[in-house]
């Protein structure tokens, strides 16, 4: 909640989110140009152009390194992030990093945290990370176990809404109507079915853990702030980061940030924070856009917009999903952040 004695910062440049660093408190200023800046994932890795996951992971782990004075260990689930950062005999990781299996990152991280406690080094913190497949599907059991034990682990899910590393197959995070290799755009109802899937941030909240947040590569400052905040908390924490995938979504690589922003502004991806199971903050939509604006630039939704014959019904159902999010998280309000 904002401190009422502090005047909120106005964003004077209409139509943008730009604000000069000098208008911000020193601790809120960006450090992109600083020579001291941490660099969890260094250059030379093999991510695709416009990869949202590479961007999200780098900002998240850099923030974690800053927050802990570099005393952080990362555990990685199998997936794109693991593969593109560690092609033998190279590694892009500048922090201690362990990859074990696809479905066990949360448990392995629990083990690292336990070892640090046993070794009398509780100042060394642990982050587990994976894609949506490694988190919402195959890694879900271990993740839920880590949550319920309230192990001292921050788990970060980079959600690009399908199994991209194996060639774009449906996961339980794939949105309705999206085309994937296993929900092809054929038949009467092309793409993924409606009424399925998991909302992992809400499931994480149901464990009553100290901190759950969603974030997006559309707002890296917000992501960094949430990671930094998470590192001040002990116990199980979860951050779900929205990371567009140009390859899997059939979008232009330069549109990664734009699509991430449209997902927020349409209401399809609500950005919020929760503590001990209760939503405490959400990011208001600045200028609501119809879901079409978000869907149209992506080939995975192209079947919804066939020339002259848009799939009005199913676009309306996606709009209903967005509207339900807006209502649930109170995303349309005059005050901006609340």
């Amino acid at each position: 909640m904002p401190n009422e004695t502090v005047q909120p910062i106005k964003f004077y440049q209409t139509g943008t989110l730009t604000v000069g660093n000098r208008l911000l408190d020193p601790e809120k200023r960006t450090v992109q140009a600083s020579g001291e800046r941490t660099n969890a994932i260094t250059s030379g890795h093999r991510a695709c152009q416009g990869c949202g996951e590479a961007l999200g992971a780098r900002y998240a782990l850099d923030a974690a390194m800053r927050a802990t004075g570099n005393r952080v260990v990362a555990v990685n689930a199998t997936g794109c992030l693991e593969v593109f950062t560690t092609p033998y005999p190279e590694t892009a990781w500048q922090l201690p990093w362990l990859h074990s299996l696809f479905g066990n990152a949360a448990a392995v991280a629990s083990g690292v945290a336990a070892a640090m406690r046993a070794k009398g080094r509780p100042e060394v913190r642990v982050i587990a990370q994976g894609g949506d497949g490694g988190t919402t599907d195959i890694g879900f059991g271990c993740l839920s176990g880590m949550f319920e034990r309230n192990d001292d682990v921050l788990y970060i899910c980079y959600d690009n809404e399908a199994y991209m590393n194996t060639g774009v197959q449906r996961s339980s995070a794939t949105p309705p109507a999206a085309r994937t290799a296993t929900t092809p755009a054929v038949g009467d109802k092309p793409g993924n079915v409606f009424g399925t899937g998991k909302n992992l941030p809400l499931i994480a909240m149901a464990h009553g853990i100290p901190y759950v947040a969603t974030a997006s590569v559309a707002d890296l400052r917000d992501l960094e702030a949430k990671v930094q905040k998470a590192m001040t908390i002990r116990g199980a924490r979860y951050i779900h980061v929205f990371v567009p995938c140009p390859l899997g979504w059939g979008s232009a690589s330069q549109d990664t940030i734009k699509l991430a922003r449209l997902a927020i502004e349409s209401g399809l991806f609500p950005v919020f924070e929760a503590e001990y199971g209760e939503v405490v903050r959400s990011r208001a939509i600045r200028r609501k856009v119809p879901v079409e604006d978000y869907l149209k630039p992506q080939r995975r939704f192209a079947h919804l917009f066939k020339a002259g014959k848009p799939d009005v019904d199913r676009i309306a159902r996606l709009q209903a999903v967005a509207d339900a999010n807006i209502k649930r998280f109170n995303l349309l309000r005059p005050d901006g952040d609340a």
Partner: peptide, 16 residues
Amino acid sequence: ESEFAALSVAIGSSAA
């Protein structure tokens, strides 16, 4: 919560 987790935790702690 499972044997898979048991050995996975063990992997993490041993590597640490």
